[in-house]
Design a protein around this nucleic acid. Sequence first.
DNA 1: AAATCGTGGAC
DNA 2: TGTCCAAGATT
Length: 360
Amino acid sequence: MAMQPEAIGQNLLDWYAAHQRRLPWRETSDPWAIWISEVMLQQTQVATAIPYYHRFMHRFPTPRHLAGANVQEVLKLWEGLGYYSRARHLHRAAGVVVSRYHGQVPDDPAIFRTLPGVGDYIAAAVLSIAFGRVIAVVDGNVKRVLARLFELEHPVNRSGSHKFFQPLADRLITPHQPADFNQAMMELGALVCRPKNPDCGHCPLFGLCRANRNRTTADYPRRDAARKRPHRHLAIGVIVKEDKLLVVQRPMDGFLGGLWEFPAIPAMPGENADRAIETELADEIGLRIGMDRLLTRIRHAYTHFTLSADVYLCRYLSGRIRLKRAQSHRWVTFRSLQRLPLHKANHKFLEDLKNVLGKG
DNA sequence: AAATCGTGGAC
DNA sequence: TGTCCAAGATT
């Protein structure tokens, strides 16, 4: 493969110096700030992460601030950003940094890489950008750029492809400017070598790119076909007891771990709602409840399945809480709901709920 | 090594 | 509407 690493690196660095965006985490060299930004940017677009980054850094300016906080508060700041294990891992990692490394972010790859939530990408990004270590990042942008540059046949969404892309990126990285090279590759992928409608006319690697020369940019990167996503349906119960509503907290590990929600059970779309709510949902939380009426229906798309749910207004009848799956519960007013981290599917009917409760 | 894990933007 | 996919990590 005709690589010309020197030409690629120099063109890339020149382009980056002229065209890089001004981003909050580029105004600092604090490894903690860089780390936070990289975790938030994981599978998340820059524009989405920016307001979260500011709020998080303001509340947790150092690992010590985060380590001393309650997970609940951390999840509340993460609410809406998704992939909540990132927040829980970060919280745990901050604890390790404080207890074992005197609150200083480790600059040793072998050590930093062992922290919860730190994989190959985060380690390479933080250590190169904050400490100048010569380790190439390989993210979705880098794989797309390389796949087009060299017309690579490795599917970028296949886990086994990583061990092909990583050494290739390591061979291209400019040893004197690893931080700029890494960010330049990602910036190029984000601004020029985009997934759709790449702007090859303004690409610094125009003359070096095989896909451009062969008019095959649309064929790269290769990708394994995605599986079809299944569909799930829930019955959700908003259980009212005087002026309070019942919410439960999901188990800390797994899907939406640690977040709060209104109790729900799997259901069939056409199922008899009264029966399902008053037997199965009641059994899930250990109460006797009555179903009043349908509040609304919601739909939500997750990565691996789509969700639809019927949301029912219910009334508490009798009994003491006995939770099956949830780890804890609270009776809360509508107002105090906003203090708890709720996931998106629940936020989707809060307005409807507010209107109904407001009318008495 | 394939599956799992959220949400929003772009088309 | 559906589909991709976005500065990935974990199991």
